[in-house]
Amino acid sequence: MSGYSLLIEGVSKTYRGSTRPAVDNLDLEVRPGEIFGFLGPNGAGKTTTIKMIVGLLRPDRGRITLDGCDITKDPIRAKGQIGYVPDNPDLYDRLTGIEYLNLIADVFGVPQAERKRRVHDLMDMFELGGAITDIIQSYSHGMKQKLALMGALLHDPRLFILDEPMVGLDPRASHLFKELMRKHCDRGNTVFFSTHILEVAERLCDRVGIINRGRLIACGTIEELRSLHRTDESLEDIFLELTGATTKPETNGPGLTTDREGR
């Protein structure tokens, strides 16, 4: 055992036909009990990395291990530890919510009594009880997102991997969900998620990684990032500086008045 929940070693991925790697020699480790935030501008390679972690894409080079389990060598055991929610909650439109959850529970082998308890808990938390017997086609975006999250949590995964999970959640749900992530980690599990909401990352994550153009350009706790830059700037400022945004908003001004943004 490596002692890491998630270990990414020298992983590269170039989409066929593309000249530039989408993920370039990425090294990352996430320890058990940690909430890891994965940040980066659009097109930086977050979704690509996450798809490789969950086995939807195969890396060109490098190795990804989940709890000591290589995703390419032993995909079934590795996938069994993951709860994954993609960036778009495209579920089976013509199943009902409960049919989808039962499918997931069957596939992950969740025993009957336990699945009943979990489904009821999650349903209460996400307030999806009234819609659970409706077909998914009739759900709103946020409801689909909630159902996808429920499906991913149903088998109490060791590793919870989420691609922009907050998109579409209402404030109450996203608040509860953040608490749930915390509790999940306190039980020794691990959460790895990508997000564009820096305040969430700042408050919630034990550590963050910032990826830009496929390369990891910073990784550590918020404090470590701050001390590295010898400032007490917010994560937003660090992010903008690191990812080379030339239009750094005035730190004290209202922020909307820079020339470039005016155009």
Partner: peptide, 19 residues
């Protein structure tokens, strides 16, 4: 709600028919 536990193959087959 009914919660029957099925084998993965049977659950997937049932889903296939439903879809």
């Amino acid at each position: 709600l009914r919660f029957h536990q099925r084998s993965p193959a049977r659950a997937l087959a049932l889903t296939e028919v439903r879809l």
